[in-house]
Amino acid sequence: MKQVLLAIDTSQGTSVAVLIDGEVAAEATDSNPMRHAENIGTLIARCVEQAKVKPNEITDVAVGVGPGPFTGLRVGIAAAKMFAAGSKAKLHGVGSLDAIAFRLDLEAPTLVVSDARRSEVYFGLFQGKSAKGIPQRLMVPAVGKQAEIESRLQTQAQPYELVQRPVSAVSIGWLAIALVSEGVKPEPIQANYLREPDAVQARPKKVSD
């Protein structure tokens, strides 16, 4: 049976792809970082149509679990969960920075960064790949000020190449396929927020102050 995989990532813009047995059958991306809820349905429908498959023929759904700005990131994961439920497909979670790294050669240590807003970046340090092409992490993804991270790596005499580029759903799909074929234990389908929710604990106070 052929594998029909729907891939979704909303850690930056909204990116959707359909891969049939690993071949790209359709791809659609809108880079607007504020319109995930508006775009997600249209882009999925467009890709499914372009790939000339019926929604219930989708066998796998792969989704980028971040890190990424919360509100947009959740839209993609919510969509992936529900699409998998509706089409009775298997669901795979993939790191969004790992998916960017998947397309790089990674011969030298590579610092992959993406916009985390509030003057910070999400970042991961990768070098080398497994036999199936899975990027090897030198550091788990984290969030911070780019200048601080770079100066820290320089202090540690850690060489790196800096890469900042959009994540594509095609990479999410390919990485998911690689992870399955290598038998890597799948990640739980959970948003990798890397930040605590903005919330202050309420304390009783004088309302009339």
């Binding site: 995930h36 509100t71 959740r74």
Partner: peptide, 23 residues
């Protein structure tokens, strides 16, 4: 709440497309 609404909207749209049903 906008951020909360978007979770439901993203979920509902994908579910509708996956079932090929109206939303």
């Amino acid at each position: 709440l906008a951020g909360a609404l978007m979770v439901g909207v993203g979920a509902a749209k994908a579910l509708a497309v996956s079932l090929n049903k109206p939303i």
